[in-house]
Amino acid sequence: MTKETNEKMSGDGWEPRIIAFLCNWCSYAGADLAGVSRIQYPPNVRVIRVPCSGRINPLFIVKALQTGADGVLVSGCHPGDCHYISGNLYARRKFALLKSLLEYVGIEPQRVHFSWVSAAEGARFAEILGKVIDSVRSVGPANKMIKKFEEVA
């Protein structure tokens, strides 16, 4: 185990690190609305804005887990509201399979989350984030997929 993970495991100081892939048109705007509405949400999330949930390559999620994210949230427009008509509906199929596959190989399902959040749902975004953080916290720091850079002699 890396020094970093050790510290995270041992201390009470560990806070989950979550990567959120948010679509530009709905969920990112929703997160923005939460901000301008001064709705508090925990700072565990690092947001990556993407044009559409359909743009999200499932490898993004796998890669986030490999490079040290404890959890991933993917959020797009509600079905029917996609700026590109159906990007989120294609994405939904991919995500259903990916979530199932990750669980199948033994990665905790509590780490990977999907949601639909519209541009008007600032409060809902904060609420979902709270749930996601609790869920990731319940399984502790990620240690399965992470690539470690230990010294090899």
Binding site: P79, L89, R92, A96, L97, H113, F114, S115, K131
Partner: peptide, 30 residues
Amino acid sequence: LFEAQVSLSLEEAEALSSFRMEDDQSFMTE
């Protein structure tokens, strides 16, 4: 989930290049 079989005919669209409005969402957190 999608009641689809892989590559049985030239006409049918493959599972991931199609969708249905009522596709399963039970895997989603919200």
